[in-house]
C-alpha cells in the first residue's frame, strides 16, 4: 500500500466531494445560451432532425476530424507495437513473399 498515492487519492476525493455542493442542481437548466441556440436553430440551418448529429457533423465537424485522426494514430500505434514479423515479407513488390 503506497501511502503517498493513497494520500493523493484522499485529497482528490475531498476536493471532488466538496465541489458537488457548489454545482448547479441536477435538472435545473442554467447557463444554456449556446444549447438553446442549437435547439432552436439546428433544424433550419442544417436540416437534421437529430440535434446531436448536427453538432457532431456540422457545427463541430472539426472535432470529428480530430477524433478520426486519433483512431488512425491508435491503429498505427497498435500496428507498431504488436507486429512480430518483418514488414518487408508482406510487401507488394517483394518476390519472397510468404
Amino acid at each position: 500500500m503506497n501511502w503517498f498515492r493513497a494520500y493523493v487519492i484522499g485529497v482528490l476525493g475531498i476536493l471532488l466531494f466538496v465541489s458537488v455542493l457548489y454545482l448547479p442542481g441536477f435538472g435545473s437548466f442554467q447557463n444554456k445560451d449556446v444549447a438553446n441556440y442549437y435547439l432552436q436553430n439546428a433544424w433550419k440551418e442544417t436540416g437534421s432532425a437529430n440535434i446531436i448529429n448536427s453538432i457532431v457533423w456540422d457545427y463541430r465537424g472539426y472535432d470529428t476530424l480530430g477524433e478520426e485522426t486519433v483512431l488512425f494514430a491508435a491503429a498505427m500505434g497498435v500496428f507498431l507495437i504488436i507486429r512480430k514479423k518483418e514488414y518487408h515479407k508482406y510487401g507488394l513488390n517483394n518476390k519472397n513473399r510468404k
Binding site: 437548466f29 444554456k32 449556446v34 444549447a35 442549437y38 435547439l39 440535434i51 446531436i52 453538432i55 457532431v56 463541430r60 472535432d63 470529428t64 480530430g66 477524433e67 486519433v70 483512431l71 494514430a73 491508435a74 500505434g77 497498435v78 507495437i81 504488436i82
Partner: peptide, 27 residues
C-alpha cells in the same frame, strides 16, 4: 429537450479513450 452539447463532447471522448485503451492493451 435536454442539452445536446455535452452529448457530442462525450461521443468524441469515448472514441479517444477507446484508442488509448487499445494502445495500452497492446503495450
Amino acid at each position: 429537450a435536454v442539452d445536446p452539447l455535452p452529448q457530442a463532447m462525450v461521443l468524441t471522448s469515448i472514441v479517444i479513450n477507446l484508442s488509448v485503451t487499445a494502445v495500452a492493451l497492446s503495450l
